[in-house]
Amino acid sequence: MISRDDLRELLILTALGALVGLVHLVLRPGLPVLAQPAAACTLAEPALAEPPPEALRSELPEELP
């Protein structure tokens, strides 16, 4: 049976874990606290990338075996 003491322990441990996690996140270089959202695009928007130059486009071989 879960008692009030158990819930108190759970609360303290959770707070401690969250605190340690936040300190770890802030002190660790290279990992922002809040990640940048992924770039979103819709079908209605034009493509940002330029089409490949003519020279890089693949061509079908003229004669297939």
Binding site: G17, A18, G21, L22, H24, L25, R28, L31, P32, V33, L34, A35, Q36, P37, A38
Partner: peptide, 11 residues
Amino acid sequence: PDVSVNLIATL
């Protein structure tokens, strides 16, 4: 949500 991923990954 994307913004919460790093927070979750550390907590």
